[in-house]
Design a protein around this nucleic acid. Structure first.
Length: 592
RNA sequence: GGCGCGGUAGCUCAAUUGGUUAGAGUCCCGGACUGUCGAUCCGGAGGUUGCGGGUUCGAGUCCCGUCCGCGUCGCCA
């Protein structure tokens, strides 16, 4: 070992000890006759003094010329700082190392930015020089937190006899669901592997194989557009168990959530976590991942809208649509007409709403709005009653389909909560959304799609509706929601081949296609498949949420940009013609 | 694919309605300095305003196209 201690380790009690430290030059204060260097490693910062009597003039001169972010080694004696010179900002601030030996292990070119600079550089620069960016204290914290969370997960599942099994990265493409990343095969012309979107099918087969408790920290890949909380490759804590029902899986994860909150945040999370059905969630919050850190619940006023003379409301209600709204407490004076116009543009642009209706609850309790002349007093009173409106409130409404009102109000609700500061950044709100629909209809083709995946088991009680009323058929599915973000999702799987066939049939996957794509799973189900189910937890999301961050790239060492590029390695990149030829490929477009 | 925001010195930003030589802080380079911890002081260097085209007497500023980054909707079984 080149060093005897780390830069975060030394305290007053170490005074007098001879030490050797290694690290990066965080900053340097050159006084000519003496030089102060803040030496940094991932454990902390220690002040090094290069000055007389320990150091001679040559050494002081050399230290004065060392470039920022150079890697150096120093040897010297730990000494208590002079009276009144302690630095309270540093854990090591009561001591310094008076260096008698100073050595540059590797000098650093002038970096485009330094890890500790006051203004954070643009993200593209941070990504290009990720090795510098990762030196920043925030990034180091994120990475350590990530490691701690993964360790907590592994330890937790190990306690419950789960075993870790690795499943292939090179698998089969399944055209359902997200787009696959494909890998061409050299030895099989015109054939492709696909990178896994999840280890779903493998883990089910592991259940058939008798490994009744499986986990894996699994890299997954989806070739879809990115978001602040979505990367094309991401990590899941994938888990599967045999002989369980949905409640068993949820309560096991309840324990993990509580354990993790306790371990990494020192917070108590009460279990069992609250459960809410999908229907209830969409009705009250417009979303299947409701943010329960604040109220502003959606209220359905369609019944009143039907009676009014206001054409937009009445017309929508009469034609099977919905008029739903959210009460925004004490916001009447906080939003100008212009700001409301902006919100209107938001719901129109992002959710396809036709407009945004709003009322102000006046001091006398009456409702006022540019459209209020279209309403009878009695109807206004009814609306206010339903919305529990009080003076100073702003009531906002969308009149549209169930989907548009849900998504629009959910978006509005979240945006307003952020605007109005209704969210406590310290809160960690965890809950379950259950009983998702089995199927949703594809707007374009009119066909049924699996909402989760086609191996999801229906609720026993809904089995009769599977064939004739698929829209009413609910799944044994559960999503873990943390602070309004989907942090995991799982289901109980179908373990009997005939139910599986029924589901495929409904999805328009004929027996031949099913055999071609999933034959191996269907085959396995015939050979003694136990009842089983599991969940996949989004590790990146967990770290992001536990760290209180709102961007997933901040918890991934080497993330990709919105166009799925790696600015550091320049991936994806072009390849030689020869490489393509070996893979039996030809580029469709020649790049200039 | 749609909508929106952004790109000016190595970095973070500024530049009035289109108007003189595009500024500041920081970093960097040179010098001074033994108690700093955002060290201080003196001096200096540093620019094809992302790229291409257009309008104009004149473009960082206006228009068109394009590239890159970010947010969001679609998409993400």
């Amino acid at each position: 070992m080149l060093r005897t201690h780390t830069c975060g380790q030394l305290r007053k009690s170490d005074a007098g000890t001879e030490v050797t430290l290694c690290g990066w030059v965080e900053s340097k204060r050159d006084h000519g006759g003496a030089v102060f260097i803040d030496l940094r490693d991932r454990y902390g910062i220690t002040q090094v003094v290069i000055g007389p009597p320990e150091a001679n003039a040559t050494l002081i001169d050399e230290a004065g010329r060392v470039a920022a972010e150079s890697v150096i080694l120093i040897r010297g004696k730990v000494s208590e700082r002079l009276e009144g010179k302690a630095n309270e900002k540093l854990a090591t601030g009561e001591i310094e190392v008076r260096s008698e030996h100073f050595e540059i292990l590797n000098s650093c070119e002038t970096p485009p930015f330094t890890p500790n600079q006051a203004d954070l550089p643009g993200e593209d620069l941070r990504l290009k020089y990720r090795f510098l960016d990762l030196r920043r204290a925030e990034m180091q914290r994120s990475m350590v937190l990530r490691s701690t969370i993964v360790k907590t997960m592994r330890d937790y599942f190990a306690e419950y006899d789960f075993i870790d099994v690795e499943t292939p990265i090179l698998g089969r493409s399944t055209p359902e669901g997200a787009r696959d990343y494909l890998v061409p095969s050299r030895v099989h012309p015109d054939s492709f592997y696909a990178l896994p979107q999840s280890p779903q099918l493998y883990k089910q087969i592991l259940m058939v194989a008798g490994f009744d408790r499986y986990i894996q920290v699994a890299k997954c890949f989806r070739d879809e557009d990115l978001r602040a909380d979505r990367q094309p490759e991401f990590t899941q804590l994938d888990m599967e168990m045999s002989f369980v029902d949905a409640e068993d899986v949820m309560s096991l994860i309840d324990g993990l959530v509580a354990r993790t909150a306790k371990e990494v945040l020192g917070k108590e999370v009460k279990t069992p976590l609250p459960r809410m059905t999908y229907d209830e969630s969409v009705r009250r919050f417009g979303s299947d991942a409701p943010d329960l850190r604040f109220d502003m619940e959606i209220v359905d006023v369609t019944s009143v809208a039907k009676k009014t003379e206001f054409r937009v409301f009445r017309g929508t209600a009469d034609s099977g649509g919905f008029v739903r709204g959210i009460p925004v407490k004490n916001a009447a004076t906080k939003y100008s007409r212009r700001q409301i116009d902006e919100l209107t543009e938001y719901v129109k642009g992002d959710f396809g709403a036709k407009g945004l209706a709003w009322f102000r609850v006046e001091d006398d309790g009456s409702l006022w709005s540019p459209i209020s002349k279209n309403f009878d007093e009695a109807h206004l009173a009814e609306i206010k009653e339903l919305m529990a409106g009080e003076p100073g409130d702003l009531l906002m409404f969308l009149a549209d389909s169930w989907e548009v009102t849900s998504k629009g109000l959910a978006g509005l609700r979240k945006r307003l909560a952020v605007d109005l500061g209704l969210i406590d950044p310290e809160e960690l709100n965890c809950s379950w959304v259950t009983e998702f629909p089995m199927f949703e209809r594809d707007e374009e083709t009119g066909r049924w799609n699996a909402m989760h995946h086609p191996f999801t088991a229906p609720l026993e009680s809904d089995l009769p509706s599977l064939k004739d009323n698929p829209q009413d058929c609910r799944a044994q599915a559960y999503d873990l929601v943390i602070n309004g973000s989907e942090a995991g999702g799982g289901t109980i799987r179908i373990h009997n081949p005939s139910t599986q066939s029924d589901v495929f049939e409904l999805l328009g996957i004929d027996a031949e296609t099913a055999e071609d794509r999933f034959g191996f799973l269907l085959n396995a189900l015939k050979y003694g498949a136990p009842p089983h189910g599991g969940i996949a937890l989004g590790v990146d999301r967990w770290v992001m949420l536990f760290a209180g961050l709102d961007n997933i790239r901040e918890v991934i060492a080497f993330p990709k940009t919105q166009k799925a590029a790696d600015l550091m390695t320049q991936a994806p990149g072009s390849v030689d013609k020869e490489q393509l030829a070996e893979l039996h490929l030809r580029a469709a477009k020649v790049t200039n």
